[in-house]
Structures are given as structure tokens and as C-alpha cells.
């Protein structure tokens, strides 16, 4: 339904974001405390962490909006302010509500286009791309949250950039919109672009992100591929589906396994191989309908990951007000 743009500008361009050792304080509040990570081309990198963990501040520092006290943030090896026609290097969406409410969507994209020396034709292209053509001449003040997000994404894609950076793009989207964004992000990465997407809800990035940078209290607490994370979180656990969970847990525990109920009829088991579990259950005459290797959700993987980050879990950082 929505085709991603052609990637003619990507050839020969190393699309990366490299953030290293960023520190930033607002008064006494420490927002960034040595933030270091990089975003590689061809992947959707999820930038996750609770509200106030420093995701938006990091993005603002990358875009040169906020000055870091220490550290560097480079786009394709250059600081943002050294980029010529920056929107054709990095497209970003920080706050979809940051619009002049009496200007039309087309007017908004038009001034952005003119700032990069692009023509109005490109504006109409991206409007088409995000499905806003029919509403393009209405005042942006009357837009729904979802429409504003689409307009913000259109602005991010205006310069056909090699790097795309979106702050909480799923906020306010309807289910159809969420599906659309997911597909869109995947196709952008498939074209070889580097995509950084922040979110405070892990489920939003399920099946979307290839790589995860988890942050808390202004620093990275995990930086790994999604496959590795889920593999680690799944471990050697086995899922058992049964109509008699109490009996199942009792007989498996007696056999020396560690058991946990994760649903009304599902139990995870570790410490016993699947064939041994089947044997134990048959011996105990406990009914079961399925025994399979357990695959953790991204949510579980994330909880597993942060379980060890005691410092991070002990107290949620206070919200940083900018």
C-alpha cells in the first residue's frame, strides 16, 4: 500500500550514527551519563528504555539541538552542523505536535523542502508516500495525532536520507497505523538505510527491530541483536501446555525441574530435556497437549535483560523535562 522511496541516494554513503561518551546535565539532573552506541545501516535499531532514560535527549544531541557537556555524536562521521543539506543525510521526527497550527501540511513540508533546495514536487511525493495527499491543504492544527505522525514521518523522509531517526513514532497511532509504520521501517532498512526508533513499549518493536539499544539513567545497559537477546532469554526452557497445571508442576518439580506458570494453561520448565518431560508426565498420568521449546517475547527478553541492572530497576529515573 505504501511504497518506500527509491534508494538512489544511498549508493556509496556509509549510513551510520555514532554516539560516544555523551554526558549532559540540566541543572542538577543528569540526563546523559556516558551514552555510547552506534546505529548501523540496513538494520532497524530499537532505542528502548523507560520515560526519562535519556532517549529524546540523545536524539536532540545527535541533531545538534542540545549541546552535550562531553562526548560526540556523529552522522556518517560528521557532526550534524557540518552536514550540507542535513535533511538528505538524516531524517528525523522528534515531536509530531511541533507544527504551526495554522499552516497547511503542504506549507510545512514546502518550507522544509526550500531549506534544502528541494522542489515542491518532492513535497507532493512524500505526501503521497504517507497517504496525506487528500488532506495536504488543510490546516495542520486540525489534524489528528495519527495524521500528525504521518506528516512528521513525511518530513523525515523529505530529503530521502540514508539515516532515519524517529522518536516514539507509534504514539497515538491506530492499529492500522502501527502495522503501517512497522512495514515502513522494515522496508527503509531493507533499502540499506540506518533506522533508529525509540520506544518505551517493547511490544511495539516486536517483529520490527533487528537490534536493540536499551538505556536507563542516561547510559546504555544493553546493546545487542534481537535474535541473541531472545535466544538468551529463552535459554533451554521448554513450554508445556496442559489442562492440569497444578499436577504438571508437582510431578515435574519432584523430577528435579524448575517450573514456572506463565499462563492459565502454560508452564515453562528448565532443567529437564523435552523427551524426559514427556516421559515424566506420562508416568504421572498428567494430561498435556503440547511440549515445545519456549521462545521468549521481546518483552520477556527485555525484562530478563534489565533484571540484572539493579541500579536501573531500584528507582526509575525522574522525568527530564526537556
Amino acid at each position: 500500500m505504501f511504497a518506500a522511496p527509491d534508494v538512489h541516494s544511498l549508493a556509496g554513503m556509509e549510513a551510520t550514527i555514532e554516539v560516544s561518551g555523551l554526558r549532559k546535565s540540566f541543572g542538577r539532573t543528569v540526563a546523559l551519563d556516558g551514552m555510547t552506541f552506534s546505529v548501523r545501516p540496513g538494520l532497524v535499531t530499537g532505542f528502548v528504555g523507560p520515560n526519562g532514560a535519556g532517549k529524546s535527549t540523545t536524539m536532540r544531541v545527535i541533531l545538534g539541538l542540545n549541546a552535550a557537556n562531553e562526548g560526540t555524536a556523529l552522522i556518517s562521521g560528521k557532526p550534524y552542523h557540518r552536514l550540507r543539506h542535513p535533511l538528505s543525510h538524516v531524517g528525523s521526527l522528534l515531536d509530531a505536535a511541533a507544527l504551526h497550527s495554522s499552516r497547511s501540511a503542504r506549507g510545512h513540508l514546502l518550507w522544509l523542502a526550500h531549506s534544502q533546495g528541494m522542489s515542491a514536487r518532492r513535497v507532493d511525493e512524500v505526501l503521497e508516500l504517507v497517504g496525506l495527499t487528500s488532506a495536504a491543504r488543510r490546516k495542520a492544527g486540525g489534524y489528528s495525532l495519527g495524521m500528525r505522525q504521518r506528516l512528521g514521518i513525511a518530513a523525515a523522509l523529505l530529503g530521502d536520507p540514508a539515516t532515519v531517526m524517529l522518536d516514539e513514532p507509534f504514539n497515538g497511532m491506530d492499529p492500522e497505523g502501527i502495522v503501517w509504520i512497522r512495514g515502513f521501517l522494515r522496508s527503509l532498512a531493507a533499502q540499506g538505510r540506518a533506522v533508529l526508533v525509540s520506544s518505551h513499549l517493547m511490544s511495539e518493536l516486536e517483529d520490527t527491530a533487528d537490534h536493540l539499544v536499551a538505556v536507563g539513567r542516561g547510559k546504555v545497559i544493553a546493546d545487542s541483536s534481537v535474535a541473541d537477546l531472545i535466544g538468551a532469554a529463552s535459554g533451554s526452557r521448554v513450554a508445556v501446555r496442559t489442562t492440569a497445571p497444578q499436577d504438571t508442576m508437582r510431578v515435574l518439580a519432584v523430577a528435579g525441574a524448575t517450573v514456572a506458570a506463565i499462563g492459565r494453561d502454560t508452564i515453562t520448565v528448565s532443567g529437564l530435556a523435552p523427551d524426559r518431560i514427556v516421559t515424566v508426565l506420562n508416568e504421572g498420568a498428567v494430561p498435556f497437549s503440547e511440549v515445545s521449546a519456549h521462545r521468549a517475547t521481546l518483552e520477556e527478553a527485555y525484562m530478563e535483560l534489565t533484571r540484572n541492572a539493579v541500579e536501573f530497576r531500584a528507582a526509575m529515573p525522574t522525568e527530564v523535562a526537556r
Binding site: G64, L65, H81, P86, L87, A97, L99, L112, Q116
Partner: peptide
């Protein structure tokens, strides 16, 4: 100040970092 009140100043400075 219209740009500051809506937050659009960030879009402006993203488009023209100088």
C-alpha cells in the same frame, strides 16, 4: 516566538543547523 511555543524551532534547526 511562534516557533518556540509550538516546538517547531527544533524542526527549523534540524533543517538548518547553522
Amino acid at each position: 516566538s511562534g516557533e518556540y511555543s509550538s516546538g517547531m524551532i527544533r524542526t527549523t534547526l534540524t533543517a538548518v543547523p547553522r
